[in-house]
């Protein structure tokens, strides 16, 4: 098990390096270096430009040096002091900005994942065990719809219903009075009363996908010879289902973190925009439109790294659960 974790951690290194390169590339992609953009914007706003400050920034990011030196300066700053650079739009450090919003993003992703599991697990099992029953058809239909309806459409429709029939805005995560308040019980309750809409919106596609996968896997497993063999030894039906095929069909469930999480984080961007949630998504979008590239690139990198860590956790859980993954050399 330890060697498995060690191996898995080792595999992560090139992935992380690649992610940082991609994020750096995204920062560098817009034409001209960001300082030129920055100076142009400052002068357009009629603000005084401090030559000394420009020079220090130029030095700090190594803008006159070759691109790989710039990369190492940038990644060096991140690794040593968590210095992600400056947001020129907000005139604050990227780390501060992201730190403000990241916890809610993680909370939302975690809560959605949990909800997805809680819903998909029993429905998927029911659907497979009672194949072709009315409940199965219903679950399959919902599954198809959940996959076909873009989640921002669900968000828009919920917003529309809320606005039209209840005359209130259902967006955001907090009521206005708690927006800037410090954390207290009231704020937590207020959060709970708002969070279910983004949860539903974000969770639909994942739940639908999981139901389909669990159903298909379980149906496959139920037909495997070892199920018949176990039945032939007198293993009771319920135990047969839980102990044998379900254990194997559980695998994709555990590894969902691997594919649901990236999709979730992506979906979060668009849903957060529609529902105006105070998460990293809208921050990244506005950074991308205003070409505030250090902010945008850093957010892309941070959520990518978090996703990779999530995948790692799911892989370890999988190995713990499935001896084949743990003991077999690939």
């Amino acid at each position: 098990m330890l060697s498995f974790i060690a191996r898995r951690l080792l595999y992560m290194v090139p992935t992380l390096v690649l992610i940082s390169i991609v994020a750096f590339a995204i920062i560098q992609l817009p034409p001209g270096d960001f300082l030129t953009t920055f100076i142009a914007r400052m002068s357009a706003q009629g603000e005084a430009i401090d030559q000394a400050q420009i020079d220090s920034l130029r030095e700090r990011y190594g803008l006159d040096e070759p691109i790989y030196v710039q990369y190492f300066k940038w990644i060096g700053g991140i690794v040593t002091d968590l210095d992600f650079g400056q947001s020129f739009e907000w005139k604050r450090s990227v780390a501060d900005l992201v730190w403000d919003r990241l916890p809610l993003t993680v909370l939302l992703a975690g809560a959605t994942l949990t909800l997805t599991w809680i819903l998909a697990f029993p429905i998927g099992i029911y659907s497979a065990v009672k194949q072709y029953s009315i409940g199965d058809y219903l679950a399959t239909t919902i599954g198809y719809l959940g996959l076909a309806i873009p989640n921002f459409m669900i968000a828009l429709i919920l917003l529309y219903i809320g606005f039209r029939y209840f005359g209130q805005s259902v967006g955001g995560l907090f009521s206005p009075e708690y927006q800037d308040a410090a954390w207290n019980l009231g704020k937590v309750l207020d959060l709970l009363s708002h969070i279910w809409i983004p949860l539903i919106v974000l969770g639909t596609a994942g739940t639908a996908g999981l139901i389909r996968i669990l159903r298909a896997n379980l149906l496959d497993e139920l037909r495997k010879p070892y199920v018949v063999a176990a039945r032939a030894r007198g293993v009771p039906e319920r135990r047969l289902l839980v102990r044998y095929p379900l254990r194997v069909a559980m695998n994709p469930f555990i590894s969902t973190i691997g594919w649901v999480l990236p999709a979730l984080v992506g979906g979060e961007v668009i849903v957060a925009k529609v529902l105006s949630l105070p998460t990293t998504g809208p921050l990244m979008l506005s950074a991308l439109t205003s070409q505030d590239m250090y902010l945008a690139g850093s957010i892309i990198m941070i959520i990518s790294v978090l996703t990779v860590v999530g995948t790692l956790i799911s892989d370890i859980a999988l190995a713990w659960l499935d001896p084949r993954v743990r003991l077999r050399r690939h």
Binding site: P225, A229, D322, R324
Partner: peptide, 19 residues
């Protein structure tokens, strides 16, 4: 099943749960 009448199958590997 398994007590009075036992059965063995064609594919021994697939007849045992890998888990």
């Amino acid at each position: 099943r398994g007590k009075d009448i036992a059965m063995i199958f064609q594919e021994p590997m697939a007849s045992l749960s890998p888990m």
